[in-house]
Design a protein around this nucleic acid. Structure first.
Lengths: 209, 209
DNA sequence: TCCTCGATGTATCGAAGCGATATGTCTGAC
DNA sequence: GTCAGACATATCGCTTCGATACATCGAGGA
């Protein structure tokens, strides 16, 4: 998860750790905050796998020369990033992962985007039903504060589902415009997306066993 | 955090681990799920500190006699619970802790309740301002998806703040009704906290250093 | 002028928590 | 009868987090 975020950010421009963390925490906004305790080990791991290079550019143009390690994405790193962005499996619609995935939708294939949004919505609908039934079945067993907490939680989930539905509709409209029925006649279509980077398959399940 | 939740639940009735976990996950609803990996160690710790007793009541009234360990709150445990419930410090309005605290508001002193709600709201207002400024300052630096993510996050926080404000108003109304001006003149100022079970001091900071 | 304070920057460590999983029993549906 | 699924306890390795140490830089006040 952090791996994806780091690679995606580095794909825009080389950066050092501190900057990386700052960006991470602004881009993901409310969702998640990363700590150094995970960032630096992750960077080292990425360097070991040669997805990034770590240039200890002491005193580049700067005077004093405070040590700062600049990380740059390699060709393998770009490949790796493409692979990760191409995945649309169940793990992508888990709470935190979804935030990261969504933040980098700009770099993600349209089909994968749709798949992730729908998967996420499905996950939340499950949750919603669970809370709903728990709320109607056992209403009298809880005091008013617990009840209020659950009511509020339920509303949050409902709101989230509405948001996703809107996004999905927008996506579908976009796709419909730029990419009509992918199989058949294709009358007067504009030059269209070059078939997702990797297999997508039926929206059912598979991947990440 | 788990400690508080477990003690609070056990204060209602003795229970075994499995049941405890189920309740935890329904009571806290959307907020947080606990796993056995944290629950059982926590129970063992509580038993070691003699806040609970662990009775291995094999075959109590039941036939076969599947091993089940029933945990019961001790007198020390009740004290400990009261202490924890009396705390209203900054840690109480941290994301996850707040959920737990709120779920057990029914057992919490009115003054502490108010304090926690206000603290929580303050924390969220801070967050809101941060996201807001980040959103207006750097609007053009992000692509539309990142922007949408932040916009949605901001709305969530705003919604949360509104919810808390409503709760606070309700609480204040209740307090005003059941407990009129405790001290003196108090011209127009809000009916003030009646010196919580333990020192509260100025609403600024302190506690949990 | 000097000195402190807060932001920038890299790095590590111990404690804590999680997810997965092994083991076994009981209940109910077919 | 038997098989799936709820009930129940327990562990273990891996990841991750929060706190912290250390150091430099820029700005501003005494």
């Amino acid at each position: 998860m952090l791996e994806l975020a780091v690679l995606a950010l580095l794909s825009e421009s080389p950066m050092h750790g501190y900057e990386l963390r700052k960006r991470l925490n602004t881009v993901l906004g409310t969702f998640h905050r990363f700590s150094y305790g995970s960032l630096y080990p992750c960077l080292r791991k990425l360097a070991a796998e040669s997805y990034v290079t770590a240039d200890d550019s002491t005193a580049a143009g700067r005077l004093g020369g405070r040590s700062r390690v600049v990380y740059t994405l390699t060709a393998e790193g770009k490949e790796r990033l493409a692979t990760l962005l191409g995945e649309g499996g169940p793990s992508s619609w888990e709470d935190e992962m979804f935030g990261v995935r969504f933040a980098f939708f700009g770099k993600t294939d349209a089909a994968v985007r749709l798949r992730i949004l729908e998967g996420r919505r499905g996950r939340l609908e499950e949750r919603r039903e669970k809370v709903r039934s728990a709320l109607t079945r056992t209403r009298e067993r809880f005091d008013s504060y617990t009840l209020e907490l659950q009511r509020h939680g339920l509303e949050s989930v409902e709101r989230e589902v509405r948001w996703l539905t809107e996004l999905i509709e927008t996506e579908r409209a976009e796709t419909g415009r730029t990419q009509p029925p992918p199989t058949a006649v294709s009358a007067g279509l504009p030059p269209d997306l070059p078939a997702a980077p990797q297999s997508i398959g039926p929206p059912g399940a598979q991947e990440e066993p």
